[in-house]
């Protein structure tokens, strides 16, 4: 935690940049522009909410930022390195070490327990078992689920599942956490709890937190809001 706090002092540094980011899908003979020349910058410790109506390009934007998809044009730079220059293997490495992902439907692995789900990214990093166990215990305590580690996802409530998903996203201590509609499948009370947790983690871990949502309640938690409409990004507009 101390190293995170120390790093967070460098809040003025640009961690993430999107330059002229464009994504075009070919549907039959016509081209669909999901994202058009988007420019975006996030500083270390930023908590940004990206909102916009359905089909506006929010998830496409998140996919490109998280390096699980490649842009048609433009580039994404993470700590100054363009993802366009990275191979599949290097992109996997980048996601594994620097990016935490939170999905709308939690996307937990059903055959793994809550603790094992949270532990999975550490396995990919080949950390020793004892260190993995310590980190899992710590992160589960942090998200308030220390006693439920042995439960399978289907034995947890929606809010608990999303907390496990958050734990999984944060366990590798990533510098960038991307959440796609993290409260969409939760009731408002649980959604508020999850967002409280995310804001706290953003502050304590000093990660760049990008949350895609069309829920105005979620937008309240952010320090900065951007809006995407028809594939174009507009800075500073709330929903």
């Amino acid at each position: 935690m101390s190293s995170d706090s120390q790093f967070c002092h460098e809040k003025g540094l640009a961690f993430l940049e999107a330059r002229s980011l464009t994504k075009t899908y070919q549907v039959g003979s016509s081209a669909v522009h999901a994202l058009q020349s988007v420019n975006f910058t996030a500083m270390q410790g930023d908590f940004v909410v990206i909102n916009g109506p359905s089909g506006s390009g929010k998830t496409t934007f998140l996919n490109l930022i998280s390096a699980i998809d490649r842009p048609t044009q433009g580039e994404v730079l993470i700590q100054g390195v363009s993802t366009n220059t990275l191979s599949e293997r290097q992109l996997a490495q980048l996601r594994k070490d620097k990016i935490g992902l939170i999905f709308q439907s939690f996307n937990l692995i059903p055959v793994l327990s809550a603790a094992e789900n949270a532990e999975y990214p550490l396995l990919l990093q080949r950390l020793p078992k004892t260190e993995r166990a310590q980190r899992v215990q710590a992160i589960l305590s942090e998200v308030g689920l220390a006693d439920l580690g042995k439960r399978r996802p289907n034995e947890l409530s929606g809010g608990q599942r999303q907390r496990i998903a958050i734990a999984r996203a944060l366990i590798t201590r990533p510098k960038l956490v991307l959440a796609d509609e993290p409260t969409a499948n939760l009731d408002s009370e649980t959604g508020a709890q999850v967002m409280d947790l995310m804001r706290r983690l953003n502050e304590e871990h000093c990660v760049v937190l990008l949350v895609v949502t069309h829920d105005p309640e979620v937008a309240r938690y952010a320090r900065r809001q951007v809006r995407i409409r028809d594939g174009r990004l507009m800075e500073g507009e709330g929903s």
Binding site: S66, I68, E88, K96, N107, P110, P121, L124
Partner: peptide, 16 residues
């Protein structure tokens, strides 16, 4: 497939 997508998004390689 969705689980595969999740694991790959988390950083698991194709070989894994």
């Amino acid at each position: 497939s969705r689980e595969v997508g999740t694991l790959r998004a988390l950083g698991a390689g194709r070989g894994r």
